[in-house]
Amino acid sequence: MCNLPVGPQTTAPAELFPFCSPRCRSVDLFRWSEGKYAIVENISERADLLEDYLEEVDKRADELEEQGDDDSGW
């Protein structure tokens, strides 16, 4: 987070590793919770995942389109 060097796991405090401070640990957790990080998997090798993903994208696009057609003002 802050780019300070962190010692090896054997010398760094176990409760902070791999972070240098509680602040950096909290910043990292916040970024995960905000979706700024992601675990990426090559879905081209998993046709089932790709199909599920495309179906979900289509479904969400339809939902957004329906919301746009709503004349209620909200």
Rank of each mutant, 00 (worst) to 15 (best):
M1E: 10
N3G: 14
L4V: 15
P5N: 06
V6T: 12
V6L: 08
V6I: 08
V6P: 12
G7S: 06
T11D: 14
A12Q: 02
A12V: 02
P13I: 09
A14M: 02
A14Q: 08
E15Q: 15
L16E: 09
F17N: 06
P18F: 03
C20S: 15
C20L: 03
S21P: 09
P22W: 01
P22I: 06
R23Q: 14
R23M: 05
R25H: 11
V27R: 07
D28P: 03
D28Q: 11
L29M: 08
F30W: 14
R31H: 04
W32K: 02
S33G: 09
S33A: 12
S33T: 01
E34F: 02
G35F: 00
G35K: 00
K36N: 03
Y37R: 13
I39L: 10
I39F: 11
V40H: 10
N42M: 07
N42E: 07
I43P: 01
S44V: 12
E45T: 06
R46F: 13
A47P: 10
A47D: 08
D48M: 11
L49H: 15
L50S: 15
L50D: 04
E51Q: 08
E51D: 15
D52H: 04
D52G: 12
D52Y: 08
D52S: 13
Y53N: 12
Y53C: 10
L54Y: 06
E56Y: 08
V57K: 05
V57F: 00
D58E: 06
K59E: 14
K59F: 04
K59P: 01
D62R: 14
E63V: 07
E65I: 08
E65V: 14
E65R: 11
E66R: 11
E66M: 14
E66Y: 05
G68H: 05
S72L: 05
S72Q: 08
W74P: 01
